[in-house]
Design a protein around this nucleic acid. Structure first.
Lengths: 235, 235
DNA sequence: TGCCATCCGTGCGCTAACACACATATAGGG
DNA sequence: CCCTATATGTGTGTTAGCGCACGGATGGCA
């Protein structure tokens, strides 16, 4: 399948590659579609491909032995999924699940690793992205400890909105609860409050961002810390 | 200052380097001592050195605007502090604070970066360590969300114990509370329960691990996930 | 030996979030 | 057009952890 040159624009990491490196990689990039809820990687499972989302959003989730789960990070058109392939571990002890249906470009792990080993811009870019993701994970830890569900819901909505081209998220409160590691009723309550404040509206699995500024005013500082770090490292 | 060859044994990452690479680095490794509470890196601050702890333990902490704080990860003789120096970001938005006084070997950032850029074992080792640290951070996020203070205290004690040569931790409940991002009274209560179960004893800033097996039986699964991943990646 | 800063224990009222139960509402297929 | 699976709303009781206040203990220093 041939790739038209502009296609990489859908992913900001790929778009940042200098022409020469991109030319080397382009033939190895293939389109993939992801459905909502699809499992990209299983915990500890083999990773045959690395994925560069263009319109899809992928959540990194840990699922406890008792079945409860919590999100530790999220990747969209600003990043990639499959860090362990170049970090040297090959697998990670958590799942990657499609949070928002859409497309991604994929590359075979071998191709990725060979290019990474060349030590060029690609390598530097991937490592900077990894650092940004680490900030997201660590800030998630802090946020889980210190902030309310309502603040965390704001953070989650903003992180998702940043990675979408639309103001509408297709996502039930039940699923958001799984991501945030809280009860569905807790999300209902928090979403209700945000709706009453006119920041969002929602109905049966569809959430609309009505007032992004308002969300940014309600969210805890965690969002800005992560956002600023992405901008600094990958801007 | 000359380094005796066995000195690197104090740090497990350095100990894993092949002879040639270690020989190149050894002249650049200098001893440093850290006092309890000392700040190794300030949030967003410049990092002149990378540190390989031998007997010290360093916490990675985020401090909120309102002064409350929470730990996102910890490094001891199994790792290093200063990941941003080779990941490309140069700084991180969190502090590194000495949790247990002791020694470390330090290296100038330039030397580190040059050796990293050679792309040999050193690079691969550092990246694998970084992946292990990511697991620790993400599991901290999960643990903060889903587990009790008592379970988290167990996790924290075990992580510290793994990085010490002693069964005694010099650490007040107040400081532990800062690390865990909870109240001092919460730690008092949890520590009391562990003491009544005979797992630890403590008095005025000194904690003794009496029954490590018992702690391992009380801790949540988060500890094992992190431990197994360190063993897999760096064992 | 006596003082005092530091560390730990405890009680009280409060809130966020939980677990469980069940009531509604609605999109979309038959 | 109805029926049902799915999504959301709500109530009740419980619990973990918070904020605050203060009391008790003790190790180290004058």
């Amino acid at each position: 399948m041939s790739q038209r040159p502009h296609e990489r624009e859908g992913n900001r990491l790929l778009a940042m590659l200098p022409g020469e490196e991109y030319k080397r990689l382009a033939p190895h990039l293939k389109h993939t579609s992801f459905a909502l809820g699809e499992v990209v990687y299983e915990s500890g499972g083999q990773m045959r491909f690395i994925y560069f989302p263009t319109t899809a959003i992928i959540s990194l989730l840990y699922t406890m032995e008792n079945g409860s789960s919590a999100e530790m990070g999220v990747a969209g058109n600003d990043g990639l999924v499959g860090i362990a392939l170049f970090m040297g571990g090959n697998t990670v002890p958590n799942r990657a699940v499609v949070q928002s249906a859409g497309k991604a470009l994929r590359m075979k792990s071998k191709v990725l690793q060979d290019e990474f080993a060349r030590g060029g811009t690609f390598q530097r870019l991937l490592l900077r992205y990894t650092q940004a993701l680490m900030t997201q994970m660590s800030q998630t830890a802090v946020c889980n400890r210190l902030h309310t569900i309502e603040q965390q819901l704001c953070r989650w909505l903003l992180l998702s909105h940043d990675r979408l081209n639309s103001d509408e998220l297709v996502m039930t409160q039940e699923l958001i609860a799984n991501m945030l590691g809280v009860r569905r009723e807790g999300v209902t309550l928090a979403a209700h409050r945000l709706q009453e404040s006119g920041l969002i509206s929602y109905a049966r699995g569809h959430i609309n961002i009505l007032d992004r500024r308002g969300l940014e005013a309600t969210v805890c500082e965690c969002y800005k810390v992560v956002k600023d770090e992405y901008d600094r490292l990958l801007g």
